[in-house]
Design a protein around this nucleic acid. Structure first.
Length: 588
RNA sequence: CGGGGCGUAGCUCAGCUUGGCUAGAGCGCUGCGUUCGGGACGCAGAGGUCGUUGGUUCAAAUCCAAUCGCCCCGACCA
């Protein structure tokens, strides 16, 4: 391809509003262009990279035995009512009505396809002989994101690979799940990503196991907790904390005293007003667990984890109590709840036991207690102590003697054991050999294709631009003839272009009549792995210059055998990239 | 949904506080010339209903109100 025939609008300056490297570089390198908040056009260069990622995903899904199909993006709203998810998704679900003849048809744009695929399978699968089966598609999904951000990382329209497995037994589900897990490792390795599979929260509904595939990046929206010593890694929503033995500091107990704290409701405000560190405060959160109010005590510098709380209480639903409930059970407005004198059940995170002379709400407007002490001023039964908070850096790792670390990450894939939630709701059953009917056991597996690109760029760039791996690069080779008006230079460039194209290599020829500096800057910006410079100077010596994007200095290779040299270099590099794939598969 | 910021040329931005000639710069773009191995230089140009609507005023990019859009922080995220 010649540069002047395609469309690569590179930019020298950073467009307003682009904050993180992947967003800035995708815009500047002419990969994407924004149409509105959360919607981007893929320009030719960006589309080529996207297609390469898509192809890798497709190849590995096929290899793992999954079968491709394509479902509609347009769904009848009624289907979403049958699983209750029209309500559950709420405003994120894009819904609308159209008129047909004289009736109103309610439609949604699919944010995911559990309903559609389960409905499909319910119609066509009846027997255990037809199972197991894993189906997938690569398709645009729609979600009305409340807040699209970070360029292509969080958009309301995005390309997703979603796969669904159907099995007759839990063992079968586990086999299907492991195959997908394995395929994911191969996919992300082939894409050149440094990824980390982590345990993930599987939510109040659905299955019993879930992993997310994360790429560590400071600008990621997710938070992962991991332990270098034990290898434990989990999403912060899921991460357990190892055994804790909170020590009560050996200081004399102070008398309980009420103090005025007018209008001071947050931990930070209380901490500042009373000049005590947040770790000296105990916050009292009032929850409704299956409609019943409970109080949960968390040390002031910690964050409550609602999933842990819900599990500890054995509740199926948990939400923060509304203002009226808080007023009814504490007798005070929001912000002044405390454990002293509460008549509802009280639960506490383990670390609360280590706080002496604590500051707590007084269950009275504009009042807090200081010098509050467990056992003297309020009670929490032993069996009501549990791990109820988010892990923090420095916490003990579960089941080991390591220490947890915390990093931000970008979620690029998710594998999830669903169970029978959808097959039961939508009547997807199979008949076993004994003619017994059972709901089909499902798993679902998603990959954000756009996020593969964003995560790659976010982690693989330098101050000059993108550094593509060969596997995702829009073009593998960029030929830069430095002076297009010198016939011998242009001839050499075109001949090389044709030879490499003939050899099946993706080649871009920068035939623009611009100064060398412009070509070099753009070459670094768009990040094509192998750059071939053809200039009058080296050509006179019978050489062309070859340089990998990640190297500083070019090497000179003889002009007449350049094509073969380049083909060999690419082959060698592809083998190096492939070696990472087997390494990652071996380790799982 | 709560808090904040910004809308002026294709892009990045100045001008607005304190209203007043024909609305500016850099980059980009067009033409000509000189240059030509890391974003060259000169000359001549094209390009803007100052987001939109309404108000105040003799006069609005500038002040006021509403509205639309974009961005950031937080909440939310099957």
């Amino acid at each position: 391809m010649r540069w002047t025939q395609t469309f690569i609008p590179t930019m020298k300056e950073t467009p307003e509003g682009a904050e993180i490297p992947s967003h800035v570089l995708m815009l500047r390198a002419g990969l994407v262009s924004q149409l509105m908040a959360g919607a981007y056009t893929y320009l030719p260069l960006g589309l080529r990279a996207l297609k390469k990622a898509e192809r890798i995903v497709r190849e590995e899904m096929d290899r793992a035995g999954a079968v491709e199909l394509l479902m509609p993006a347009l769904h009848p709203a009624s289907l979403w009512e049958r699983t209750g998810r029209r309500e559950a998704f709420g405003n994120v679900l894009i819904q609308f009505s159209v008129r047909r003849q004289n009736r109103e048809v309610h439609l949604v744009l699919g944010p995911t396809h559990e309903e559609v695929i389960t409905d499909l399978v319910a119609h066509h699968i009846n027997s255990y002989r037809q199972l197991p089966l894993t189906l997938y598609q690569i398709q645009t999904k729609f979600r009305n994101e409340e807040r699209p951000r970070f360029g292509v990382l969080r958009t309301s329209e995005f390309l997703m690979k979603d796969a669904y497995s159907f099995d007759t037994s839990l063992e079968g589900l586990n086999r299907s799940y492991d195959k997908m897990y394995e395929a994911y490792c191969r996919i992300f390795s082939r894409c050149g990503l440094d990824f980390l599979p982590v345990e993930a929260e599987s939510g109040p509904i659905g299955g019993d196991a879930s992993h997310e595939f994360m790429v560590l990046a400071d600008n990621g929206e997710d938070v992962v907790v991991y332990c270098p010593e034990t290898g434990y890694a989990a999403n912060v929503e899921r991460a357990e904390i190892g055994p804790r033995k909170p020590q009560r500091p050996d200081v004399p107990l102070e008398p309980l005293k009420k103090v005025d704290t007018p209008g001071v409701t947050t931990i930070e405000q209380v901490s500042q007003l009373l000049k005590v560190p947040p770790s000296q405060l105990i916050k009292t959160l009032i929850y409704l667990a299956d409609e019943q109010p409970v109080a949960v005590l968390i040390r002031g510098d910690h964050e409550a984890n609602e999933n842990k709380i819900r599990r500890a209480l054995g509740a199926s639903q948990l939400e923060l109590a509304d203002v009226d409930t808080i007023r009814r059970v504490t007798g005070a407005p929001v912000g002044f709840a405390g454990p002293i004198g509460l008549s509802i059940p009280i639960w506490a995170d383990h670390d609360v036991a280590g706080v002496v002379n604590a500051v707590v709400g007084a269950n009275q407007a504009d009042q807090h207690y200081v010098g509050a002490n467990l056992g003297r001023d309020f009670e929490v039964p032993d069996e009501h102590f549990a791990d109820l908070r988010n892990a923090q850096a420095g916490d003990p790792a579960p089941g080991g003697n390591g220490t947890l670390q915390v990093r931000h990450a970008i979620e690029i894939g998710h594998v999830f054991k669903l169970g029978t939630k959808y097959s039961e709701a939508l009547n997807a059953r199979f008949l076993d050999a004994q003619e017994q009917q059972h709901p089909i056991i499902m798993g679902c597996y998603g990959i954000g294709i756009n996020r593969i690109l964003a995560a790659l760029i976010e982690t693989q760039h330098d101050e000059r631009g993108i550094v593509w791996p060969l596997s995702l690069a829009p073009y593998e080779v960029l030929i830069d003839p430095l002076n297009v008006s010198q016939p011998e230079v242009m001839d050499a460039a075109e001949r090389l272009h044709d030879q490499l194209t003939e050899a099946g290599i993706d080649v871009l020829l920068d035939d623009r009549d611009v100064r060398a500096g412009v070509k070099f800057k753009d070459a670094d910006l768009i990040g094509i792995p192998l750059r071939i410079v053809i200039g009058g100077r080296s050509l006179k010596e019978g050489n062309v210059e070859v340089k990998w994007r990640w190297q500083d200095e070019p090497q000179r290779v003889p002009h007449e055998t350049a094509a073969q040299t380049i083909v060999n270099m690419l082959d060698e590099r592809r083998q190096q990239e492939a070696a990472r794939v087997s390494a990652s598969s071996a380790s799982t």
